[in-house]
Design a protein around this nucleic acid. Structure first.
Lengths: 231, 231
DNA sequence: CGAGAATACGAGCGACTACTCGTGTTTGCA
DNA sequence: TGCAAACACGAGTAGTCGCTCGTATTCTCG
Protein backbone atom coordinates (compact mmCIF):
# COMPACT_ATOMS: atom_id res chain seq x y z
CA UNK A 1 0.00 0.00 0.00
CA UNK A 2 2.76 2.37 0.82
CA UNK A 3 0.17 4.48 2.50
CA UNK A 4 2.27 6.73 4.61
CA UNK A 5 -0.65 9.00 5.39
CA UNK A 6 1.71 11.79 4.68
CA UNK A 7 -1.10 14.26 4.39
CA UNK A 8 -0.22 17.58 5.91
CA UNK A 9 2.50 15.81 7.75
CA UNK A 10 5.30 17.87 9.04
CA UNK A 11 7.08 15.65 11.40
CA UNK A 12 7.77 17.56 14.55
CA UNK A 13 10.96 15.76 15.38
CA UNK A 14 13.97 17.79 14.47
CA UNK A 15 16.46 15.39 13.04
CA UNK A 16 19.13 17.93 12.26
CA UNK A 17 20.56 18.29 15.70
CA UNK A 18 18.91 21.64 15.91
CA UNK A 19 16.67 20.71 18.77
CA UNK A 20 15.61 23.77 20.61
CA UNK A 21 15.14 24.18 24.28
CA UNK A 22 12.34 21.90 25.32
CA UNK A 23 13.63 18.78 23.68
CA UNK A 24 14.51 15.66 25.52
CA UNK A 25 11.57 15.18 27.85
CA UNK A 26 9.73 12.16 26.69
CA UNK A 27 10.33 10.59 23.35
CA UNK A 28 7.64 12.01 21.12
CA UNK A 29 6.79 15.63 20.65
CA UNK A 30 3.14 15.96 19.94
CA UNK A 31 2.00 17.88 16.90
CA UNK A 32 0.47 21.20 17.54
CA UNK A 33 -3.27 21.36 17.56
CA UNK A 34 -4.39 23.44 14.62
CA UNK A 35 -7.37 25.70 14.49
CA UNK A 36 -9.33 26.16 11.29
CA UNK A 37 -7.46 29.40 10.76
CA UNK A 38 -4.16 27.57 11.01
CA UNK A 39 -5.16 24.92 8.51
CA UNK A 40 -6.13 27.63 6.11
CA UNK A 41 -2.82 29.38 6.65
CA UNK A 42 -0.96 26.20 5.89
CA UNK A 43 -2.77 25.87 2.62
CA UNK A 44 -2.03 29.48 1.80
CA UNK A 45 1.63 28.96 2.61
CA UNK A 46 1.80 25.95 0.33
CA UNK A 47 0.11 27.88 -2.45
CA UNK A 48 2.61 30.67 -2.03
CA UNK A 49 5.48 28.21 -1.91
CA UNK A 50 4.33 26.55 -5.11
CA UNK A 51 4.45 29.89 -6.85
CA UNK A 52 7.81 30.93 -5.50
CA UNK A 53 9.38 27.55 -6.14
CA UNK A 54 8.02 27.57 -9.66
CA UNK A 55 9.56 30.96 -10.32
CA UNK A 56 12.88 30.60 -8.57
CA UNK A 57 13.56 26.94 -8.00
CA UNK A 58 14.13 25.48 -4.59
CA UNK A 59 17.45 27.03 -3.66
CA UNK A 60 16.81 30.57 -4.78
CA UNK A 61 13.37 30.64 -3.25
CA UNK A 62 13.61 32.39 0.11
CA UNK A 63 11.41 31.64 3.05
CA UNK A 64 10.83 35.35 3.45
CA UNK A 65 9.54 35.52 -0.10
CA UNK A 66 7.18 32.65 0.58
CA UNK A 67 5.97 34.35 3.74
CA UNK A 68 5.52 37.64 1.91
CA UNK A 69 3.52 36.03 -0.86
CA UNK A 70 1.36 34.31 1.72
CA UNK A 71 0.97 37.74 3.38
CA UNK A 72 2.33 36.64 6.70
CA UNK A 73 5.49 37.36 8.64
CA UNK A 74 8.50 35.05 8.60
CA UNK A 75 7.84 34.22 12.21
CA UNK A 76 4.32 33.09 11.41
CA UNK A 77 5.58 30.88 8.66
CA UNK A 78 7.71 29.00 11.15
CA UNK A 79 4.71 28.39 13.34
CA UNK A 80 3.53 25.92 10.74
CA UNK A 81 6.65 24.48 9.19
CA UNK A 82 9.86 23.79 11.07
CA UNK A 83 12.06 24.73 8.15
CA UNK A 84 12.24 25.38 4.45
CA UNK A 85 12.65 21.77 3.53
CA UNK A 86 9.49 20.84 5.39
CA UNK A 87 7.58 23.32 3.27
CA UNK A 88 8.87 21.67 0.13
CA UNK A 89 8.12 18.27 1.61
CA UNK A 90 4.53 19.16 2.34
CA UNK A 91 4.18 20.65 -1.09
CA UNK A 92 5.69 17.54 -2.60
CA UNK A 93 3.21 15.42 -0.68
CA UNK A 94 0.39 17.47 -2.03
CA UNK A 95 1.70 17.17 -5.57
CA UNK A 96 2.29 13.47 -5.13
CA UNK A 97 -1.28 12.95 -4.16
CA UNK A 98 -2.58 14.92 -7.12
CA UNK A 99 -0.14 13.28 -9.47
CA UNK A 100 -1.25 9.91 -8.24
CA UNK A 101 -4.72 10.77 -9.43
CA UNK A 102 -3.37 11.74 -12.82
CA UNK A 103 -1.51 8.45 -13.00
CA UNK A 104 -4.56 6.50 -12.06
CA UNK A 105 -6.44 8.25 -14.79
CA UNK A 106 -3.64 7.45 -17.20
CA UNK A 107 -3.12 3.82 -16.29
CA UNK A 108 -6.22 2.87 -14.41
CA UNK A 109 -8.65 2.11 -17.17
CA UNK A 110 -9.02 -1.64 -17.62
CA UNK A 111 -7.53 -3.42 -20.56
CA UNK A 112 -4.89 -0.86 -21.34
CA UNK A 113 -2.80 -3.66 -22.69
CA UNK A 114 -5.32 -4.52 -25.35
CA UNK A 115 -5.74 -1.03 -26.73
CA UNK A 116 -4.14 0.03 -30.00
CA UNK A 117 -0.78 1.53 -29.17
CA UNK A 118 -1.65 4.98 -30.42
CA UNK A 119 -4.74 5.18 -28.29
CA UNK A 120 -2.90 3.93 -25.25
CA UNK A 121 -0.26 6.58 -25.69
CA UNK A 122 -2.98 9.19 -25.89
CA UNK A 123 -4.44 8.01 -22.64
CA UNK A 124 -1.10 8.11 -20.90
CA UNK A 125 0.27 11.31 -22.25
CA UNK A 126 -2.65 13.68 -22.18
CA UNK A 127 -3.57 13.68 -18.51
CA UNK A 128 0.01 13.85 -17.33
CA UNK A 129 0.86 16.72 -19.62
CA UNK A 130 -2.31 18.46 -18.51
CA UNK A 131 -1.24 18.05 -14.91
CA UNK A 132 2.15 19.54 -15.60
CA UNK A 133 0.61 22.48 -17.38
CA UNK A 134 -1.85 23.08 -14.58
CA UNK A 135 0.83 22.81 -11.86
CA UNK A 136 3.92 24.72 -12.91
CA UNK A 137 5.43 24.34 -9.47
CA UNK A 138 5.54 20.61 -9.89
CA UNK A 139 8.47 20.25 -12.18
CA UNK A 140 10.25 23.09 -10.41
CA UNK A 141 10.32 20.88 -7.34
CA UNK A 142 10.82 17.48 -8.91
CA UNK A 143 12.78 18.09 -12.06
CA UNK A 144 15.49 20.36 -10.72
CA UNK A 145 18.80 19.18 -9.47
CA UNK A 146 19.26 21.70 -6.69
CA UNK A 147 17.22 20.26 -3.90
CA UNK A 148 18.55 18.52 -0.81
CA UNK A 149 18.67 14.77 -0.47
CA UNK A 150 15.53 14.58 1.60
CA UNK A 151 13.50 16.13 -1.17
CA UNK A 152 14.85 13.83 -3.79
CA UNK A 153 13.61 11.05 -1.56
CA UNK A 154 10.15 12.55 -1.69
CA UNK A 155 10.23 12.40 -5.46
CA UNK A 156 11.31 8.78 -5.49
CA UNK A 157 8.01 7.07 -4.68
CA UNK A 158 6.23 8.86 -7.46
CA UNK A 159 8.99 7.93 -9.87
CA UNK A 160 9.02 4.35 -8.71
CA UNK A 161 5.27 4.07 -9.07
CA UNK A 162 5.41 5.47 -12.58
CA UNK A 163 8.22 3.11 -13.50
CA UNK A 164 6.27 0.17 -12.16
CA UNK A 165 3.19 1.07 -14.13
CA UNK A 166 5.07 1.50 -17.35
CA UNK A 167 6.86 -1.77 -16.77
CA UNK A 168 3.54 -3.51 -16.23
CA UNK A 169 2.23 -2.13 -19.50
CA UNK A 170 5.38 -3.25 -21.26
CA UNK A 171 5.17 -6.70 -19.76
CA UNK A 172 1.76 -7.06 -21.29
CA UNK A 173 2.43 -5.46 -24.64
CA UNK A 174 6.01 -6.48 -25.28
CA UNK A 175 6.42 -9.89 -23.70
CA UNK A 176 9.55 -10.58 -25.69
CA UNK A 177 11.53 -8.26 -23.47
CA UNK A 178 13.61 -9.66 -20.67
CA UNK A 179 13.13 -8.14 -17.24
CA UNK A 180 16.26 -6.06 -17.67
CA UNK A 181 15.23 -4.84 -21.06
CA UNK A 182 11.80 -4.05 -19.77
CA UNK A 183 13.14 -1.90 -16.97
CA UNK A 184 15.52 -0.13 -19.27
CA UNK A 185 12.86 0.52 -21.87
CA UNK A 186 10.47 1.81 -19.25
CA UNK A 187 13.08 4.22 -17.99
CA UNK A 188 13.77 5.34 -21.53
CA UNK A 189 10.10 5.98 -22.16
CA UNK A 190 9.74 7.94 -18.95
CA UNK A 191 12.87 9.94 -19.62
CA UNK A 192 11.73 10.83 -23.11
CA UNK A 193 8.36 11.87 -21.90
CA UNK A 194 9.66 13.99 -19.07
CA UNK A 195 12.11 15.66 -21.38
CA UNK A 196 9.31 16.73 -23.65
CA UNK A 197 7.10 18.11 -20.93
CA UNK A 198 9.01 21.40 -20.66
CA UNK A 199 8.81 21.77 -24.41
CA UNK A 200 5.07 21.32 -24.26
CA UNK A 201 4.50 23.59 -21.30
CA UNK A 202 6.72 26.28 -22.78
CA UNK A 203 4.63 26.42 -25.94
CA UNK A 204 0.94 27.17 -26.11
CA UNK A 205 -1.97 27.02 -28.43
CA UNK A 206 -1.43 25.25 -31.72
CA UNK A 207 2.29 24.89 -31.21
CA UNK A 208 1.71 23.11 -27.96
CA UNK A 209 -0.64 20.68 -29.61
CA UNK A 210 1.89 20.08 -32.35
CA UNK A 211 4.62 19.38 -29.81
CA UNK A 212 2.40 16.96 -27.97
CA UNK A 213 1.69 15.20 -31.25
CA UNK A 214 5.43 14.86 -31.80
CA UNK A 215 5.91 13.45 -28.32
CA UNK A 216 3.40 10.79 -29.12
CA UNK A 217 5.14 10.01 -32.38
CA UNK A 218 8.40 9.55 -30.53
CA UNK A 219 6.89 7.25 -27.97
CA UNK A 220 5.08 5.23 -30.62
CA UNK A 221 8.15 5.01 -32.79
CA UNK A 222 10.01 3.46 -29.91
CA UNK A 223 7.18 1.35 -28.61
CA UNK A 224 6.00 -0.35 -31.77
CA UNK A 225 9.19 -2.20 -32.61
CA UNK A 226 9.30 -3.43 -29.03
CA UNK A 227 5.79 -4.81 -29.32
CA UNK A 228 6.54 -6.51 -32.60
CA UNK A 229 9.59 -8.30 -31.30
CA UNK A 230 9.39 -12.07 -31.15
CA UNK A 231 10.97 -13.93 -28.26
CA UNK B 1 34.11 51.27 -2.84
CA UNK B 2 30.66 52.61 -3.28
CA UNK B 3 30.26 51.41 -6.80
CA UNK B 4 26.56 51.63 -7.31
CA UNK B 5 24.70 48.64 -6.02
CA UNK B 6 27.33 47.05 -3.93
CA UNK B 7 27.18 43.38 -3.54
CA UNK B 8 27.26 40.70 -6.09
CA UNK B 9 26.06 40.55 -9.55
CA UNK B 10 25.85 43.14 -12.20
CA UNK B 11 28.90 44.36 -13.89
CA UNK B 12 28.03 45.64 -17.29
CA UNK B 13 31.20 44.82 -19.14
CA UNK B 14 34.56 43.34 -18.30
CA UNK B 15 33.53 40.26 -20.14
CA UNK B 16 36.91 38.84 -20.94
CA UNK B 17 38.14 35.56 -19.74
CA UNK B 18 41.13 34.97 -21.93
CA UNK B 19 41.30 37.86 -24.30
CA UNK B 20 44.97 38.13 -24.89
CA UNK B 21 47.25 38.02 -27.84
CA UNK B 22 46.49 40.98 -30.05
CA UNK B 23 46.96 44.12 -28.07
CA UNK B 24 44.16 46.38 -29.08
CA UNK B 25 45.40 49.86 -29.81
CA UNK B 26 42.14 51.36 -28.77
CA UNK B 27 42.16 52.44 -25.20
CA UNK B 28 39.14 50.49 -24.07
CA UNK B 29 39.59 48.59 -20.83
CA UNK B 30 42.66 46.67 -21.82
CA UNK B 31 43.00 43.38 -20.02
CA UNK B 32 45.83 42.68 -17.73
CA UNK B 33 48.99 41.45 -19.35
CA UNK B 34 49.42 37.82 -18.34
CA UNK B 35 52.65 36.05 -17.69
CA UNK B 36 53.04 32.37 -18.52
CA UNK B 37 52.45 31.62 -14.87
CA UNK B 38 49.19 33.53 -14.97
CA UNK B 39 47.95 31.72 -18.05
CA UNK B 40 48.65 28.45 -16.37
CA UNK B 41 46.82 29.58 -13.25
CA UNK B 42 43.79 30.49 -15.31
CA UNK B 43 43.74 27.04 -16.80
CA UNK B 44 44.06 25.51 -13.35
CA UNK B 45 41.24 27.65 -12.07
CA UNK B 46 38.99 26.57 -14.91
CA UNK B 47 39.85 22.93 -14.30
CA UNK B 48 38.99 23.36 -10.66
CA UNK B 49 35.79 25.20 -11.52
CA UNK B 50 34.74 22.44 -13.89
CA UNK B 51 35.07 19.94 -11.07
CA UNK B 52 33.26 22.01 -8.49
CA UNK B 53 30.46 22.97 -10.86
CA UNK B 54 30.07 19.35 -11.86
CA UNK B 55 29.73 18.30 -8.25
CA UNK B 56 27.63 21.11 -6.86
CA UNK B 57 26.00 22.93 -9.73
CA UNK B 58 26.49 26.61 -10.37
CA UNK B 59 24.72 28.13 -7.41
CA UNK B 60 26.03 25.87 -4.68
CA UNK B 61 29.56 26.02 -5.96
CA UNK B 62 31.47 28.57 -3.90
CA UNK B 63 34.31 30.65 -5.21
CA UNK B 64 36.31 29.72 -2.15
CA UNK B 65 35.87 26.06 -3.00
CA UNK B 66 37.09 26.69 -6.52
CA UNK B 67 40.08 28.57 -5.21
CA UNK B 68 40.84 25.84 -2.71
CA UNK B 69 40.68 23.14 -5.36
CA UNK B 70 42.98 25.20 -7.55
CA UNK B 71 45.26 25.52 -4.51
CA UNK B 72 45.23 29.28 -4.49
CA UNK B 73 43.76 31.90 -2.19
CA UNK B 74 40.42 33.56 -2.88
CA UNK B 75 42.26 36.80 -3.50
CA UNK B 76 44.38 35.21 -6.19
CA UNK B 77 41.31 33.85 -7.90
CA UNK B 78 39.98 37.35 -8.31
CA UNK B 79 43.19 38.46 -9.97
CA UNK B 80 42.10 36.47 -12.98
CA UNK B 81 38.33 36.59 -13.00
CA UNK B 82 36.26 39.58 -11.95
CA UNK B 83 33.50 37.45 -10.43
CA UNK B 84 31.97 34.02 -10.21
CA UNK B 85 29.93 34.40 -13.35
CA UNK B 86 33.03 35.26 -15.36
CA UNK B 87 34.57 31.97 -14.29
CA UNK B 88 31.54 30.13 -15.55
CA UNK B 89 31.60 32.21 -18.73
CA UNK B 90 35.20 31.36 -19.45
CA UNK B 91 34.53 27.72 -18.70
CA UNK B 92 31.50 27.83 -20.97
CA UNK B 93 33.64 29.33 -23.73
CA UNK B 94 36.13 26.55 -23.35
CA UNK B 95 33.40 23.94 -23.44
CA UNK B 96 31.79 25.59 -26.41
CA UNK B 97 35.01 25.39 -28.34
CA UNK B 98 35.52 21.74 -27.52
CA UNK B 99 31.90 20.93 -28.17
CA UNK B 100 32.19 22.64 -31.52
CA UNK B 101 34.89 20.14 -32.40
CA UNK B 102 32.65 17.28 -31.35
CA UNK B 103 29.85 18.69 -33.47
CA UNK B 104 32.10 19.06 -36.45
CA UNK B 105 33.13 15.48 -36.03
CA UNK B 106 29.50 14.49 -35.80
CA UNK B 107 28.19 16.52 -38.71
CA UNK B 108 31.25 17.39 -40.69
CA UNK B 109 31.80 14.29 -42.74
CA UNK B 110 30.61 14.81 -46.29
CA UNK B 111 27.48 13.19 -47.56
CA UNK B 112 25.86 12.67 -44.22
CA UNK B 113 22.57 12.99 -45.97
CA UNK B 114 23.24 9.96 -48.13
CA UNK B 115 24.17 7.60 -45.35
CA UNK B 116 21.78 4.96 -44.08
CA UNK B 117 19.87 6.44 -41.19
CA UNK B 118 21.25 4.03 -38.63
CA UNK B 119 24.81 4.82 -39.53
CA UNK B 120 24.18 8.53 -39.52
CA UNK B 121 22.69 8.31 -36.04
CA UNK B 122 25.77 6.43 -34.92
CA UNK B 123 28.00 9.17 -36.23
CA UNK B 124 26.01 11.86 -34.50
CA UNK B 125 25.38 10.21 -31.19
CA UNK B 126 28.67 8.58 -30.35
CA UNK B 127 31.02 11.56 -30.32
CA UNK B 128 28.61 13.81 -28.49
CA UNK B 129 27.91 11.25 -25.81
CA UNK B 130 31.62 10.64 -25.51
CA UNK B 131 32.15 14.35 -25.00
CA UNK B 132 29.55 14.47 -22.28
CA UNK B 133 31.08 11.52 -20.52
CA UNK B 134 34.54 12.99 -20.73
CA UNK B 135 33.39 16.41 -19.50
CA UNK B 136 31.05 15.96 -16.58
CA UNK B 137 31.13 19.67 -15.84
CA UNK B 138 29.56 20.42 -19.17
CA UNK B 139 26.00 19.48 -18.44
CA UNK B 140 26.30 20.86 -14.93
CA UNK B 141 26.79 24.25 -16.52
CA UNK B 142 24.48 24.00 -19.48
CA UNK B 143 21.73 21.66 -18.46
CA UNK B 144 20.86 23.12 -15.08
CA UNK B 145 18.25 25.70 -14.48
CA UNK B 146 20.01 27.57 -11.71
CA UNK B 147 22.38 29.81 -13.54
CA UNK B 148 22.00 33.53 -14.14
CA UNK B 149 20.69 34.92 -17.38
CA UNK B 150 24.11 35.78 -18.72
CA UNK B 151 25.15 32.17 -18.58
CA UNK B 152 22.09 30.94 -20.33
CA UNK B 153 23.06 33.32 -23.10
CA UNK B 154 26.43 31.63 -23.33
CA UNK B 155 24.71 28.33 -23.89
CA UNK B 156 22.53 29.71 -26.66
CA UNK B 157 25.05 29.81 -29.52
CA UNK B 158 25.95 26.20 -29.06
CA UNK B 159 22.30 25.26 -28.99
CA UNK B 160 21.55 27.35 -32.03
CA UNK B 161 24.42 25.80 -33.95
CA UNK B 162 23.27 22.32 -33.06
CA UNK B 163 19.73 23.13 -34.05
CA UNK B 164 20.91 24.50 -37.38
CA UNK B 165 22.93 21.41 -38.14
CA UNK B 166 20.12 19.06 -37.31
CA UNK B 167 17.75 21.12 -39.40
CA UNK B 168 20.13 20.96 -42.31
CA UNK B 169 20.29 17.20 -42.05
CA UNK B 170 16.52 17.02 -41.87
CA UNK B 171 16.14 19.27 -44.87
CA UNK B 172 18.21 16.82 -46.85
CA UNK B 173 16.77 13.60 -45.53
CA UNK B 174 13.15 14.55 -44.94
CA UNK B 175 12.32 17.06 -47.64
CA UNK B 176 8.61 16.55 -47.15
CA UNK B 177 8.73 18.57 -43.94
CA UNK B 178 7.71 22.18 -43.98
CA UNK B 179 10.10 24.67 -42.45
CA UNK B 180 8.03 24.79 -39.28
CA UNK B 181 7.85 21.05 -38.99
CA UNK B 182 11.55 20.79 -39.64
CA UNK B 183 12.39 23.16 -36.82
CA UNK B 184 10.03 21.44 -34.47
CA UNK B 185 11.33 18.00 -35.32
CA UNK B 186 14.92 19.15 -34.91
CA UNK B 187 14.11 20.51 -31.48
CA UNK B 188 12.39 17.27 -30.58
CA UNK B 189 15.40 15.24 -31.67
CA UNK B 190 17.77 17.43 -29.69
CA UNK B 191 15.56 17.36 -26.65
CA UNK B 192 15.32 13.58 -26.74
CA UNK B 193 19.00 13.21 -27.14
CA UNK B 194 19.88 15.57 -24.35
CA UNK B 195 17.41 13.89 -22.05
CA UNK B 196 19.13 10.59 -22.57
CA UNK B 197 22.63 11.85 -21.98
CA UNK B 198 22.30 11.82 -18.19
CA UNK B 199 20.97 8.29 -18.37
CA UNK B 200 23.99 7.25 -20.38
CA UNK B 201 26.54 9.07 -18.24
CA UNK B 202 25.00 7.74 -15.06
CA UNK B 203 25.41 4.17 -16.20
CA UNK B 204 28.67 2.54 -17.15
CA UNK B 205 30.03 -0.54 -18.81
CA UNK B 206 27.54 -2.77 -20.54
CA UNK B 207 24.54 -0.92 -19.18
CA UNK B 208 25.82 2.30 -20.66
CA UNK B 209 26.21 0.67 -24.04
CA UNK B 210 22.72 -0.72 -23.77
CA UNK B 211 21.32 2.70 -22.94
CA UNK B 212 23.11 4.26 -25.86
CA UNK B 213 21.66 1.59 -28.10
CA UNK B 214 18.20 2.51 -26.85
CA UNK B 215 18.83 6.17 -27.52
CA UNK B 216 19.63 5.33 -31.08
CA UNK B 217 16.50 3.25 -31.37
CA UNK B 218 14.44 6.15 -30.17
CA UNK B 219 16.01 8.57 -32.60
CA UNK B 220 15.65 6.15 -35.48
CA UNK B 221 12.11 5.33 -34.61
CA UNK B 222 11.24 8.99 -34.84
CA UNK B 223 13.44 9.76 -37.82
CA UNK B 224 12.49 7.01 -40.21
CA UNK B 225 8.81 7.89 -40.57
CA UNK B 226 9.84 11.48 -41.23
CA UNK B 227 12.17 10.39 -43.99
CA UNK B 228 9.56 8.19 -45.59
CA UNK B 229 6.96 10.91 -45.71
CA UNK B 230 5.88 12.03 -49.15
CA UNK B 231 5.14 15.67 -49.82
C1' DC C 1 -15.46 36.49 31.81
C1' DG C 2 -10.82 34.44 32.05
C1' DA C 3 -7.09 31.18 31.31
C1' DG C 4 -4.41 29.05 28.21
C1' DA C 5 -3.41 27.71 23.65
C1' DA C 6 -2.89 29.01 18.90
C1' DT C 7 -1.75 32.55 15.87
C1' DA C 8 0.82 36.68 14.46
C1' DC C 9 4.52 39.81 14.36
C1' DG C 10 9.20 41.65 12.87
C1' DA C 11 13.70 42.90 14.42
C1' DG C 12 17.68 40.51 14.68
C1' DC C 13 21.14 36.51 15.19
C1' DG C 14 24.44 33.36 13.36
C1' DA C 15 26.27 31.28 9.52
C1' DC C 16 27.62 31.67 5.02
C1' DT C 17 29.20 33.83 0.50
C1' DA C 18 30.97 36.77 -3.10
C1' DC C 19 34.29 39.77 -3.20
C1' DT C 20 38.10 43.45 -1.44
C1' DC C 21 42.27 45.42 0.43
C1' DG C 22 46.65 46.12 2.22
C1' DT C 23 50.74 43.88 1.93
C1' DG C 24 54.37 40.86 0.61
C1' DT C 25 56.75 37.96 -3.27
C1' DT C 26 58.11 36.76 -7.98
C1' DT C 27 58.96 37.84 -12.79
C1' DG C 28 60.13 40.42 -17.03
C1' DC C 29 62.97 43.75 -18.82
C1' DA C 30 65.97 47.84 -19.55
C1' DT D 1 70.80 45.36 -10.64
C1' DG D 2 66.67 47.97 -10.03
C1' DC D 3 62.03 48.68 -10.70
C1' DA D 4 57.40 48.25 -12.09
C1' DA D 5 54.03 45.06 -13.04
C1' DA D 6 52.11 40.63 -12.33
C1' DC D 7 51.19 37.30 -8.87
C1' DA D 8 49.93 35.69 -4.28
C1' DC D 9 48.00 35.95 0.13
C1' DG D 10 44.13 35.60 3.72
C1' DA D 11 41.80 38.16 7.10
C1' DG D 12 38.17 41.24 6.53
C1' DT D 13 33.57 43.50 4.64
C1' DA D 14 28.99 43.96 3.33
C1' DG D 15 25.11 41.52 2.20
C1' DT D 16 21.77 37.63 2.24
C1' DC D 17 19.16 33.89 4.11
C1' DG D 18 17.21 30.54 7.20
C1' DC D 19 15.53 30.74 11.37
C1' DT D 20 14.64 32.46 16.51
C1' DC D 21 12.75 35.06 20.27
C1' DG D 22 10.17 38.06 22.99
C1' DT D 23 5.89 39.91 22.77
C1' DA D 24 1.20 41.01 21.36
C1' DT D 25 -3.31 39.53 19.58
C1' DT D 26 -7.13 36.26 18.69
C1' DC D 27 -9.46 32.05 19.31
C1' DT D 28 -11.54 28.04 22.15
C1' DC D 29 -13.86 26.50 25.87
C1' DG D 30 -15.14 25.96 30.66
Amino acid sequence: MAEGASGRGEEPDARDGDARGDAGRDGAARPRKRQARGERRMREILDAAAGVFAECGYEKATTNAIAARARISPGSLYQFFPNKEAIAQALADRFTEQMGAAHREAFGSPGVGALPAAEMVDRMVDPIIAFNIANPGFKALFARADMPAGLAAAARPIQAALLGRVEAVLAERAPALSAEERTRSARVLIQIFQAMVPMATAADGAERDAVIAEVKKVLLGYLEPLERRRP
